[in-house]
C-alpha cells in the first residue's frame, strides 16, 4: 500500500521541477472564441493572463494566472544538473516551510521575459513609433520600437527589459529583445549575454491575444525554448501604481530563507 504512495511523491516533485506540468491541461485549453469584429492589430487596452487560475469558476477575487504549459528549458547537459538541483532545493524549502528569498524579496522586478507572464494586469499602448507594455506589478515598462535596428549584441547595454524591436508580418507583431542582465532569470534558468527573446504576438479575437515566446541562447540552450502565453481583455480597467516601498520580508543573512521582520506599530 505504501509503495505506490511513495512512488507518487517523487513523480509529483518531478512535475513541480519540470515547470508545474500539473496545470498543463488547463493552460493549453483554447479560450472561448468571440465572433465580434475586431482590429487585428488592436492590442491597445488592459489585459489579464488567460486562463486565470480559477477561470472555470471565474472567481473575481483571483488575480494571478497559473503557469502556462511551459516545457522545461532545453539546457545543455552541463547546465542541467545545477538547474534541477536549484529547483529541487526551492521546492523542498517550500515544503519545509522555510522558503528561499528571491528577487521579489529585494523588491526587484521581473524583467524579461518573466514580465510577460502578467502576474498582475498589463496595459498596452501603441503609437506610430512604439508599443509600450506596462505591467502593474513593480510598475514595469517595456518599450518595443517599430523597425528599430538593434545594436550588435555585444554592445547592448544590459537591463531588466533589454532592447526590443518590433515589425509586422501581416498582422503578427514580431519582437526581438536582447540585453538582459545575467541575473534577471525566468524560472531560474541561467543565460548568457547572447540570449535572444523572440516573440510573435497575434490577436486571436476581439478579447484575446497570444504571445509565442522563443528564447535562444547558444551558450546555455541546446535548442530554442518555446511556449505560448494568452491574454484576455480586462475592459475599462485602470492600472494601479506600484512602488515597492518597504518590504517587511527579508532574506535571512545566515540561511538565505525568506523571513518577516516584525516591527512595532508606529507611535503617535
Amino acid at each position: 500500500m505504501r509503495r505506490p504512495l511513495l512512488l507518487a511523491a517523487p513523480l509529483l516533485a518531478a512535475a513541480l521541477i519540470a515547470g508545474h506540468g500539473a496545470f498543463a491541461a488547463q493552460a493549453t485549453q483554447a479560450p472561448p472564441k468571440s465572433n465580434a469584429p475586431f482590429d487585428p492589430r488592436g492590442f491597445d487596452g488592459t489585459w489579464d493572463r488567460y486562463p486565470l487560475p480559477t477561470d472555470a469558476q471565474r472567481d473575481p477575487t483571483t488575480v494571478v494566472a497559473p503557469p502556462a504549459d511551459i516545457p522545461p528549458p532545453p539546457l545543455k547537459p552541463q547546465f542541467k544538473p545545477d538547474w534541477e538541483a536549484k529547483r529541487k532545493k526551492i521546492a523542498e524549502a517550500n515544503a519545509r516551510g522555510e522558503p528561499i528569498a528571491n528577487d521579489y524579496t529585494a523588491c526587484r522586478p521581473d524583467g524579461m521575459p518573466t514580465m510577460m507572464q502578467a502576474m498582475f494586469p498589463m496595459e498596452v499602448v501603441t503609437n506610430k513609433r512604439q508599443m509600450t507594455i506596462i505591467q502593474e506589478a513593480y510598475n514595469q515598462v517595456r518599450r518595443i520600437y517599430f523597425d528599430e535596428t538593434l545594436p550588435p549584441i555585444e554592445d547592448a547595454e544590459p537591463g531588466f527589459w533589454g532592447h526590443s524591436s518590433g515589425h509586422w508580418e501581416g498582422d503578427t507583431l514580431v519582437v526581438d529583445t536582447i540585453g538582459i542582465k545575467d541575473y534577471v532569470m525566468f524560472r531560474d534558468v541561467p543565460h548568457s549575454a547572447n540570449m535572444r527573446i523572440h516573440e510573435r504576438m497575434r490577436m486571436l479575437d476581439a478579447n484575446h491575444f497570444e504571445n509565442v515566446v522563443t528564447v535562444t541562447d547558444p551558450e546555455y540552450l541546446e535548442k530554442p525554448w518555446t511556449w505560448t502565453w494568452i491574454y484576455q481583455r480586462r475592459p475599462n480597467y485602470k492600472m494601479y501604481e506600484y512602488v515597492c516601498e518597504e518590504n517587511h520580508e527579508f532574506a535571512d543573512p545566515e540561511t538565505g530563507a525568506q523571513r518577516m521582520r516584525i516591527v512595532p506599530p508606529k507611535k503617535d
Binding site: 511523491a9 509529483l12 494571478v64 524549502a93 517550500n94 515544503a95 522558503p99 525568506q258
Partner: peptide, 25 residues
C-alpha cells in the same frame, strides 16, 4: 503521504501563483 502531498501542492500553488514569494513561512 497526505501531508507530503499537501506540502508539495502548497509549494505548487505558491509557484503557480508566480506571486511575489512563497507563503510557506
Amino acid at each position: 503521504f497526505a501531508r507530503t502531498l499537501a506540502l508539495l501542492l502548497s509549494g505548487l500553488a505558491a509557484g503557480a501563483a508566480q506571486a511575489h514569494h512563497s507563503f510557506a513561512m
